[in-house]
Amino acid sequence: MSREPSKTANIREIARRAGVSIASVSRALNGKPGISEALRERILTISRDVEYRPSAAARQLISGKAAVVGISLGRRDFELRPYYILLYQHLTLALHEQGMVPIFFAHDQTAMLPERAGAAILLGEFPDDPRAAWLSEQGVTLVRIGLSGEGFSVAPDDHHGLYLATRHLIARGRRHIAFMGGELALPTPHPRLEGYRAALAEAGLTEQLLSLPHEIVNASLTSYRDLSRRLAKLADKRLPFDALVCATDELALGCLAALEDHGIAVPERVAVTGFDDLPTLAEDLTTVHQDIAGIAAMSVELLGEALAGKPPRHVSMPVELVVRETS
């Protein structure tokens, strides 16, 4: 009697049994070069033993040129940010698990993407970003990790996350809550800012905006310098805020350092919250947790749907508030 196919058998399990990388398994399953024939046969034997069956999305993805997915980066050095490093790692893993080969393209390399990849995942969009429209014109199937719009996209529920963080601070008795973020003066959607504003409006409180420079290379250093300058100007040391809601964990960490250097106790005098829940960096920080691995996996699932010709959709991933020492 034949055994039932394993419901958990996937490319990661094959890699573990073979003692090789997920990339090697992907090459073996898709007939790609880069591994020996002996290793390819061993991997294929294991895949048959575990009765590996790629998902419907995977079957769409591993056919033809679409087996190569271009990860298109924004116009800045996002790869230096911890958040994007984590996202890259999870995207690479999610694509390899579906038999895909990821290739990263800097913003100024966008023109090369259609020559080397049949599909794309876009990161770091900015106002009037031409990449999505141009790649679509070139016939490249794509998914955006960002705000909803035309086509397929996925993003954390930014609005709800900042609403939760601000409501938490209000519940703790804070009444002078400032929001720190970048590019706040630009006429573009700011879901996190709008979540903050929604919570303040419910409580009848007035907003305070700490807008950072348009170009941010090092978020923590930028927020540290900005807040330090503001604090140095307070001759009477009377703070205009009793809480800081920061658009990211990295901004929050810079603020915490500035407050510490100026002898301002956290959370006694000023509470601080972030957004992302970055491992290690947010260890003591009250922040909004987003499922970075889930976002990466969903972007690959949406890519499979796009290649299968299904109707476009936007997926808003759930978030949750994690209360720690800074509030």
Rank of each mutant, 00 (worst) to 15 (best):
M1W: 06
E4K: 15
I11H: 08
E13R: 15
E13S: 14
I14F: 05
G19M: 01
S21A: 08
I22W: 01
I22D: 10
A23H: 10
A28K: 03
A28Y: 03
L29G: 05
G34I: 08
I35C: 01
I35L: 04
A38L: 15
L39Q: 15
I43K: 07
I43Y: 02
T45W: 06
I46G: 07
S47P: 10
R48Y: 04
V50R: 00
Y52M: 00
S55K: 03
A56W: 04
A56H: 11
A57E: 12
A57T: 10
A57I: 07
S63M: 13
G64K: 11
K65F: 13
L73D: 11
G74P: 09
G74T: 05
R76Y: 15
E79P: 09
E79I: 14
L87H: 06
Y88A: 14
A94G: 07
A106W: 11
A106S: 15
H107F: 11
M112H: 14
L113Y: 10
E115A: 15
R116W: 11
A117D: 00
A119V: 01
G124T: 09
F126P: 04
P127Q: 02
D129T: 11
D129G: 11
P130A: 10
P130Q: 05
W134N: 04
W134Q: 11
L135E: 03
S136T: 14
G146P: 09
F152R: 00
D158K: 07
A165Y: 08
R172H: 10
R172K: 15
R174D: 09
H176A: 15
I177K: 02
I177S: 02
A178W: 06
F179S: 00
G181I: 06
E183H: 13
E183C: 14
L184R: 09
T188Y: 10
P189F: 08
E194G: 02
Y196H: 04
A199W: 03
L200W: 08
A201T: 12
A201C: 08
G204F: 06
L205R: 08
L205A: 09
Q208L: 07
Q208C: 06
L210T: 03
L212G: 00
H214V: 14
E215M: 08
E215T: 14
I216C: 00
I216N: 02
I216W: 00
N218L: 13
N218I: 08
A219K: 09
L221P: 01
L231D: 07
A235L: 13
D236A: 12
K237Q: 15
K237L: 06
L239F: 13
A243T: 02
C246S: 07
C246M: 02
C246R: 01
A247C: 06
D249M: 06
A252H: 11
A258W: 01
E260A: 14
E260R: 14
H262S: 12
G263C: 08
V270Y: 03
V270S: 07
V270R: 03
A271D: 10
G274L: 04
G274Y: 05
F275D: 00
L281K: 13
A282K: 03
D284G: 13
T286M: 11
I292D: 00
I292L: 05
S299G: 04
S299Q: 09
V300T: 10
G304L: 04
E305Y: 07
A308R: 08
G309V: 07
G309S: 05
G309D: 07
K310H: 12
K310S: 13
R313P: 06
S316Y: 01
M317T: 06
E320C: 08
L321Q: 01
E325Y: 05
S327H: 05
